[in-house]
Amino acid sequence: MTPSGGTPTGLRLYRPRVSTLWWTRKRTYFVFVMRELSSIFVAWFVVYLVVLIYAVGQGEAAYRRFLDWASAPWVTVLNVVTLMFVLLHAVTWFKLTPQAMAVRVAGRRVPGFHIIAGQYTGLVVVSGFVLWLVRR
């Protein structure tokens, strides 16, 4: 008499407790959680860039101070870790895209390999553009 998924009152469901460290037991689970944790590092670097933009807006001296601060060992270590996590994000994201969306051209499904290759091409083109724009 209950709607699908609902629970009649008074009935107690068996809900096994999942351990907080469930993801350390298998390599694939571990990689999954590491991939999800890349979100923290994406946020960190966006904040870092916002502070850089603000410093540039404040003038030449503030920009120099930012670069000085950014050369501190802890910032360097954090940015190296950030780069590794963002690369993990990029590789896993590119790999998953063909599974998440079916691209059709002229009625035929584009093979996953082409979608993945297209994204790596995008990464190279965008990186080249960024390098050109900031070093011009």
Partner: peptide, 12 residues
């Protein structure tokens, strides 16, 4: 995925 690697490498 496409913008951050180069920006981290350069500005970070």
């Amino acid at each position: 995925a496409v913008f951050l690697p180069s920006l981290i490498l350069l500005f970070g």
